[in-house]
Nucleic acid binder design. Structure first.
Lengths: 225, 225
DNA sequence: AGCCTTGTTGTGCAAGTGTATAAATAGCCT
DNA sequence: AGGCTATTTATACACTTGCACAACAAGGCT
């Protein structure tokens, strides 16, 4: 190509080209960039400049959509929790299946991708580690946890009801706490050391353990031998 | 008050008094101060000056005992993990008790203070959240986890052996994974929302769930009614 | 076309960061 | 008592951080 006339004025301060995006889009981009940055560099490494760079804007813009960094982090955490609980509950809305199958599907869904995911775990741990000092984080967690446990309790009631058993409220609560713990514990193991388990292994263990906890006769589907 | 004569020499630079402590003591103080700071302010808020202030020294001294901040944090994490696994295993060294009682004591110990503790949990979550990005943290966790799981596996083998059952390696592994998950999950619930549970409730749930997982006949000691 | 709103950039700033290094002094040794 | 040395303090420095604000321009409106 021939040397085209340099279109750049010699001392003109170059100003970056930009496009105006809708507010919804920009806010979401910034939140996603925040989660990416926190997952990769931690809370300490997630500076406004890092986040803005990842979102394709400059740092100053953040303050146009959020009062400050703290609020951005809070909204990012809320967004993360929303997505997690949404995915977790999605497995419960199946129809034309027995309660027991729905419970198994619920456990299985929580112990496979995309819920078993190192990045999501890293984010969860990073934020939850601040729950002790940050009341707003603590409250957000508490709500998510109780919502999750109530879902579990409802399915458990259905499963036991189908078996002609009538547990009282205390038993139901204990079952829900235990099952919630089983899922959480296996979720952590899978996220932190997924390659130590064969595909589906955690889900199989989870289902077997949950059914043992409820005192159900072993199913044939996931039995060992 | 009358204007007392200012005891301060006018331009003399005041230099802080200090005592020389042994190397072991200072290192431990700095590590403890680091853990305190991280628990209270998070990794981002734990600056060298904050840590040093808490340890009763000035920031420059840190570099006299540690090559840099990163090494201080790593040693602090190692110290934390060491204390945690040490406490957790302590419950296993009882003598003159049946394997089943030892298992129950192990579960119970892990679901009561001092292992159920919001500060320790906050530290664990903060550090573990960085495991995905920091290989040295990931390795430290992996070792602690496998060590813990092996302990569990050994007790499980004893318990089942005492019941005349001969599980193969795969079953044993699954039991250990499941029991580890139960303990971890209940530990998290207790740390994050301890006041939602009555004293001993989590331990009771844990023992019952673990025994159900192993297919043991319900014991009378912790039975509901 | 030209204007006007406002989304967006760029710069500046005070505070705080980790690290480097010089200066001081506490406490042991003789 | 007095000196020596290593522990400790204090200061300096280059850099980053979150935030404030002025300048700019993208894109709809008339």
């Amino acid at each position: 190509m021939p040397d085209a006339a340099d279109p750049a004025p010699m001392n003109a301060p170059y100003r970056r080209k930009f496009r105006r995006e809708g507010e919804e889009r920009r806010r979401q981009d910034l939140i996603d960039a925040t989660l990416d940055s926190v997952a990769e560099y931690g809370l300490q490494g997630a500076s406004l400049r890092t986040i803005a760079l990842r979102a394709g804007v400059t740092a100053g813009l953040v303050r146009h959509y959020f009062p400050g960094k703290e609020e951005l982090l809070q909204e990012a955490y809320a967004s993360l929790m929303g997505r997690m609980t949404e995915q977790a509950k999605a497995a419960l809305v199946m129809e034309n299946t027995s309660p027991r199958q729905r419970l198994a599907a619920f456990v299985s869904a929580n112990l496979n991708v995309p819920i078993i995911d190192a990045r999501v775990f890293s984010l969860w741990a990073t934020f939850i580690g601040r729950a002790g000092a940050d009341p707003s984080l603590a409250r957000a967690h508490r709500e998510g946890y109780l919502g999750f446990r109530n879902e579990v309790e409802a399915v458990v009631a259905e499963v036991l009801g189908a078996e002609q058993r009538k547990p009282d409220a205390g038993e139901l609560r204990h079952h829900a706490i235990a099952i919630n713990a089983i899922i959480d514990g296996l979720w952590i193991e899978g996220c932190l050391a997924g390659e130590m388990f064969s595909p589906g292994e955690l889900a199989a263990i989870g289902i077997k353990t949950v059914e043992a906890e409820l005192g159900l006769a072993p199913s044939t589907k996931f039995q060992e031998k």
